[in-house]
């Protein structure tokens, strides 16, 4: 079938040059991540580039292997587990993220895994003013 070696290369090249369509959702994921922080993704909430408004977008990241769903709850969303579901990494890996706009202030928050397991953010200060026996973390949003 491949009598001439050069033909093989030509066929491979022609094959590989065909246009590839990438999921256009990449665009929105890029823009969401850009809003989420200026640094490459690690753990903990990251402040977005300076914005004109008082509100800044923060990206929350948690590693939760084997979780089916993870919710971000805190002083910014009425601790409502239905309000801010976190999104798993693209191939269903253990990294979950959510982006939340925050105005200046101090907020306590936690991650709720599968509706029952509480996780604090290991990359953020622990909230010592916790009254309910489960760990919480603190994010502080500056105005200057």
């Amino acid at each position: 079938m491949f009598e001439h070696s050069e033909n093989v290369i030509e066929r491979i090249v022609a094959h590989l040059r065909r246009p590839v369509q990438i999921d256009p959702a990449v665009d929105s994921r890029v823009m969401e991540e850009i809003a989420g922080g200026p640094t490459p993704r690690v753990s903990g909430p990251h402040e977005a580039p300076p914005a004109e408004t008082a509100t800044r977008a923060f990206q929350f990241v948690v590693v939760a292997p084997r979780a089916a769903r993870v919710a971000l709850v805190g002083d910014f969303n009425d601790w409502d587990a239905a309000r801010t579901p976190m999104r798993p990494s693209q191939r269903g890996g253990p990294v979950w993220t959510a982006v939340v706009p925050l105005s200046p202030g101090r907020y306590r928050y936690a991650f709720l895994v599968d509706g029952s397991r509480w996780l604090a953010d290991p990359a953020a200060p622990a909230a010592r003013d916790d009254e309910f026996g489960t760990p919480s973390s603190v994010v502080t949003v500056g105005g200057s």
Binding site: V73, D75, D78, W79, D80, A81, R108, L112, W118, E131, F132, G133, T134, S136
Partner: peptide, 26 residues
């Protein structure tokens, strides 16, 4: 607002009623 949030935190975390009231009072 911080008081409402503290009470709701207690509710979401399934804390007993007296613990929630105490936390809000503190």
């Amino acid at each position: 607002e911080p008081l409402v949030q503290r009470a709701l935190e207690g509710a979401t975390k399934g804390a007993p009623g007296e613990v929630i009231v105490g936390a809000v009072q503190r």
